[in-house]
Amino acid sequence: MAKRIDAKNVDIYYGAFHAVQDVSLTVEPRTVTAFIGPSGCGKSTFLRTLNRMHEVIPGAHVKGSVTLDGTDLYAPGVDPVAVRRMVGMVFQRPNPFPSMSIFDNVASGLRLNGVKNKGVLSDAVERSLTAANLWNEVKDRLGRAGMGLSGGQQQRLCIARAIAVEPQVLLMDEPCSALDPISTLAIEDLINELKEQYTVVIVTHNMQQAARVSDRTAFFNLAAQGKPGRLIEVGATETIFSNPTEKATEDYITGRFG
């Protein structure tokens, strides 16, 4: 199920503004890759190009190549909606659909894809909630509103919703920034489990979190405000945190700036 991402010479623009410059990296299947760097350096913007979510902003466009197991995600005729089914996303703040029950939140993507069989939907909901370590907590109240869950449970519900459509890649944009430490630990444990099936990419400002959950780390930075963000260094997380090649990486990780 998990697939490899290759980005080559990616430049990202919002209208005339050059947001991210010349990023090339590979994300291996069944790994967790963390994007770190100071605010405004383009890591979340780059993350969104991996499933074409940046295109919801008028004027946004990309130059370069992003492929999923060799398939060009930006080739003419490729449907962005189809890309987002293959490359799911979990956002910074939990965002259950407010008018939907727990069951309907998880089943929503499948229904959009035309699945109507109640048995198939029920099996998929149970499987996804189980994979998100939420089934035992909610199995007796699937008809209640998803918004009635705690923040940590809501985020796991959103993860269940994302994986219900069986993507190959799961993107997470600061998924723990709005959560308490106990909920954060639960999400981190879940990330470690999810990489057995999925390719996972996470943006985080938490250095300790990056060190705990990721196999590889990519450090982004920018020369100055208003300049495009760039990928400074990428490698095994242990190496990036203990013996980085670039001084800017070391300065950021040790807290000298950022």
Score class of each variant (00 low, 15 high):
94 P>K: 01
247 K>G: 15
146 G>T: 05
196 E>F: 14
70 G>R: 03
228 P>I: 05
85 R>C: 11
123 D>V: 12
214 S>W: 00
213 V>K: 01
116 K>L: 00
236 A>W: 09
128 S>F: 08
95 N>V: 07
196 E>D: 15
70 G>W: 07
91 F>H: 04
161 R>G: 11
119 G>V: 05
67 T>M: 06
39 S>L: 02
180 D>V: 05
8 K>H: 15
157 L>N: 06
36 I>T: 08
191 I>C: 07
90 V>N: 05
175 P>C: 01
42 G>C: 01
111 R>P: 04
161 R>E: 09
235 G>D: 15
155 Q>F: 02
246 E>G: 12
83 V>Q: 00
100 M>N: 11
125 V>H: 05
35 F>W: 04
53 M>Y: 05
122 S>Y: 11
116 K>T: 12
208 Q>S: 11
218 A>K: 00
132 A>P: 11
7 A>T: 15
192 N>F: 00
244 P>F: 06
206 N>P: 13
142 L>E: 11
51 N>M: 02
18 H>V: 09
161 R>S: 09
212 R>Q: 14
165 V>Y: 01
86 M>Q: 12
212 R>M: 08
177 S>H: 01
61 H>P: 14
223 A>M: 14
206 N>V: 10
20 V>M: 03
76 P>T: 06
141 R>P: 07
53 M>A: 11
176 C>N: 00
238 E>I: 07
104 D>A: 09
107 A>T: 05
230 R>H: 10
3 K>S: 15
50 L>D: 06
43 K>S: 04
112 L>D: 12
